[in-house]
Nucleic acid binder design. Structure first.
Length: 502
RNA sequence: GACUGCGUAGCCAAGUGGUAAGGCGAUGGUCUGCAAAACCAUUAAUCGUGGGUUCGAUCCCCACCGCAGUCUCCA
């Protein structure tokens, strides 16, 4: 029996707004597509949260035994600048501002993005396709939609005919919007006169002469519309219908709605079985975004250089912080919350280090069947909580209980003999796996420098000596002076000493 | 204005038709020469307001208030 059969997943499908049982199109396999970043700037922490959420989802699916193909795109073309007069490519605009080639920008920010993902221990997707690598496919599907009568050309651009689509399908199925209201209340855009209706969206945009990124097409030189890339890339690598499509809440409308319309129009079937939307990271209750000026760069967070921060926080602290809330809730970001997370994570991290060093005495002396039952229950709960809409917050609550148990064992090694070796091993492997494989919380070690480690050990040796001599004044001075420079000495039960860098 | 979602202890944050996880903080204790860490115990929520359904609602429905997001590029 596969783990995914033992612990079947249920998840909230944005399409229905309800929690549903997760069933894959092909048994044992999962196709998952997530809207990736637009690489025209550094990724901020808000972006990171979304990718973390889907990192957890893909990790857990794999952990349960599914074979997962996870596709996350890189948008390196196609976004229109909102306040620009004409449909202008965001990347193209920035290129001119900085006097750089578009591809130079794309490369720089793609590398930054991937680097940040690595720091947070967010695993790379199976395929990371770029929009510019799929121009041909985007032209082809645009042609197909024209042939089907669902798109029309106007002045070198091609638009999707939403009203036409809506006559046989439901536009608004995902976002709950009403097409009539959209037509009435839609904002005037400058390319309005080209479009039949305000809500029609571009599949292909004609490039102005000064536009740098451009490709030849049957309609002249231009570039693809924003929504079409995701449809093309998801279809190409996952098929016309696939299991999971994810992204940030802010993409639900219009982006995902448009994707559904295009794909359904072109292929005659609904593209996605389960839509998952992750919620926003907020700062003082407001969405973190570049334009609001309240965004944090990951590097500012690690070093503490952002004016709103008191100090720096490690990547794993931040990762833990985000996992304490459910992906579908907004998460508010503050110094206080981050400090609490730092301490909480340290606790789990210490237990992780400890459990790795603990071994069972291989025989039971004074069996405690109640404890045994509790442990087995905790193991089971980890899976059940994760299978319940990837509830990392609930899972962490169990891990905290497990950490307490680990500390107890570490303090009283003889208590290990109260449970069977089999249960202990299960407990141990579950704790380690949940931490490292599923939640991706890597062990953070304080000593990472041999020279420093050696130096401190010399001081520890000295301190042991003077302590044995009952020279407490000197032993305290060694400890206090080290503490003053951020090194915390801890005396163990059996006279051993360890240290920790703060 | 329309649509979507949220409002739980000092702070962060889960969750449920039968009065509510966990973390941080606070208090007391154990351990320690003293600390730190750890362990034990204690602490704090009339679950935004007002109605309705129900034997019973914080969780279901309605209204209202407040907040956020989307409707324009956005994770």
């Amino acid at each position: 029996m596969k783990l995914y059969e033992k612990y079947p997943i249920s998840l909230t499908n944005s399409l229905s707004g309800k929690k549903e049982k997760f069933e894959t199109l092909v048994p044992g396999f999962v196709g998952m597509y997530v809207c990736g970043p637009t690489v025209y700037n550094f990724v901020h922490l808000g972006n990171t949260r979304t990718f973390l959420s889907f990192d957890i989802i893909s990790r857990y699916l794999r952990f349960l035994g599914y074979k997962v193909r996870y596709v996350r795109n890189i948008t390196d073309v196609g976004h229109l600048v909102g306040d620009a007069d004409e449909g202008e490519d965001k990347i193209g605009k920035k290129a001119r501002l900085e006097q750089l080639e578009p591809m130079e920008i794309v490369k720089r920010y793609t590398e930054d993005f991937q680097n940040v993902m690595r720091q947070f221990n967010i695993l790379p997707p199976s395929i990371e396709p770029s929009a510019t690598g799929h121009i041909v496919e985007q032209i082809n599907i645009t042609k197909k939609l024209i042939d089907l009568g669902l798109a029309y050309e106007a002045n070198g651009s091609v638009y999707f005919d939403v009203k036409k689509y809506n006559s046989s399908h439901h536009y608004g199925i995902l976002s709950g919007r009403n097409i009539e209201e959209l037509i009435e209340s839609g904002r005037e855009l400058d390319s309005q006169d080209e479009k039949r209706e305000k809500i029609d969206f571009a599949l292909w945009k004609k490039a102005a002469p000064e536009h740098i990124m451009r490709w030849p097409s049957p309609w002249g030189d231009g570039f693809p519309g924003w929504h079409i890339e995701c449809t093309v890339m998801s279809t190409k690598y996952l098929g016309e219908t696939f299991d999971i499509h994810g992204g940030g809440m802010d993409l639900k409308f219009p982006h995902h709605e448009c994707e559904i319309a295009q794909a359904t129009g072109a292929n005659g079937k609904s593209p996605v079985r389960f839509w998952i939307h992750s919620n926003m990271l907020t700062v003082n209750g407001q969405k973190m975004s570049k334009s609001l000026g309240n965004s944090f760069l990951p590097s500012e967070l690690f070093t503490g250089s952002h004016p709103l921060l008191e100090k720096g926080y490690s990547p794993m602290t931040v990762r833990f912080f985000m996992l304490q809330s459910h992906y579908s809730s907004t998460l508010d970001f503050s110094n206080e919350a981050l400090n609490a997370a730092e301490k909480g994570f340290k606790k789990l991290n210490n237990a992780l280090t400890l459990i790795k060093s603990l071994t069972h005495p291989s025989k039971i002396t004074n069996q405690n069947s109640e404890l045994e039952k509790t442990l087995l229950d905790q193991i089971d709960k980890c899976f059940q909580n994760m299978s319940d809409d990837f509830n990392t917050a609930k899972t962490l609550a169990v891990l905290f209980e497990m950490a307490s148990q680990i500390n107890t064992w570490a303090n009283q090694k003889e208590s290990l003999a109260q449970v069977s070796e089999d249960t202990f091993e299960k407990f141990k492997s579950t704790y380690i796996a949940m931490m490292e494989e599923v939640l991706g919380l890597k062990e953070e070690t304080s000593g990472n420098n041999d020279l420093l480690d050696g130096t401190i050990n010399v001081l520890i040796g000295l301190r042991k000596k003077v302590r044995a001599d009952k020279n407490f004044a000197l032993s305290d001075k060694i400890r206090d002076d080290l503490k003053a420079i951020g090194i915390k000495l801890k005396d163990g039960k059996e006279g051993e000493m360890s240290y920790e860098i703060e």
